[in-house]
């Protein structure tokens, strides 16, 4: 088996699927947030992998994919911070960390 771009992408897809399934099956917001981290990481993996296969020229490297991944990491950090803050707020309000309990936005 030769390991190429496709392999990385396939791995990333599998990881993304696992994250998504986790997000869908878990009701604990903490775990859902973790699932989201898994999904974001899988996307980062694709970005970095693509970047590896389009590296540009020496002295004029193409780092778009890695830069993007970097930004994704930053955004993921922000997301985790806000998400956890919301979680705490919700826990105060409802004494629960279940996502189903947050349904005040109904209609």
């Amino acid at each position: 088996m030769e390991i190429g771009l496709g392999t990385y992408l396939a791995l990333a897809s599998v990881l993304f699927g696992i994250g998504a399934v986790g997000f869908l099956t878990r009701r604990n917001i903490l775990l859902q947030l973790m699932s989201i981290e898994v999904m974001l990481n899988s996307v980062n993996l694709t970005l970095v992998a693509f970047n590896r296969w389009t590296p540009g020229e020496p002295g004029a490297w193409n780092h778009h994919g890695q830069v993007f991944a970097f930004f994704v990491i930053a955004v993921a950090a922000a997301e985790a911070a806000v998400g956890l803050a919301i979680l705490i707020s919700l826990y105060r309000l409802k004494s629960s960390v279940e996502s189903d309990s947050a349904d005040l936005l109904k209609h």
Binding site: G6, T7, L9, S13, V14, G17, A20, V21, W53
Partner: peptide, 19 residues
């Protein structure tokens, strides 16, 4: 979702670029 992930994995696995 699992099926989607699997399909996606299968679909993209054949993508190849020269190393």
């Amino acid at each position: 979702m699992a099926m989607v992930g699997a399909t996606l994995a299968f679909g993209v696995s054949s993508i190849d670029r020269p190393y």
